[in-house]
């Protein structure tokens, strides 16, 4: 049981770091960047659950990965054409 949790935590960490690296790559398009930062938040909420913090996990899932991503997309839809450089 403990080994399973450990492996899960390790896997989550690897995917989180990978998604974060994608999210700061200069060449990627903005929707992909925003989605990967949302993915980092979503996996962080699973990580909180493994760390015995269900309250924080709920907050991160609802606020960090849900509402933040939508705020980014609302602003992104207003600033089309400004993505140079």
């Amino acid at each position: 049981m403990s080994e399973l949790l450990l492996a899960m935590s390790l896997l989550l960490s690897v995917v989180m770091v990978g998604a974060a690296l994608v999210a700061i790559q200069p060449g990627r398009s903005l929707p992909i960047i925003i989605l990967s930062s949302g993915l980092v938040s979503l996996l962080a909420s699973v990580q909180y659950l493994l760390l015995a913090a269900p309250d924080v996990a709920m907050t991160e899932a609802a606020i960090g990965s849900g509402l933040t991503t939508f705020l980014f997309f609302f602003v992104l839809s207003r600033v089309r054409g400004g993505d140079r450089g």
């Binding site: 269900p54 309250d55 996990a57 709920m58 907050t59 609802a62 606020i63 509402l67």
Partner: peptide, 17 residues
Amino acid sequence: TPGGGFQGGAILASAAL
């Protein structure tokens, strides 16, 4: 239970969304 005002508030806002 886990949860509370901030989480519930965010869920309400997602209904508006």
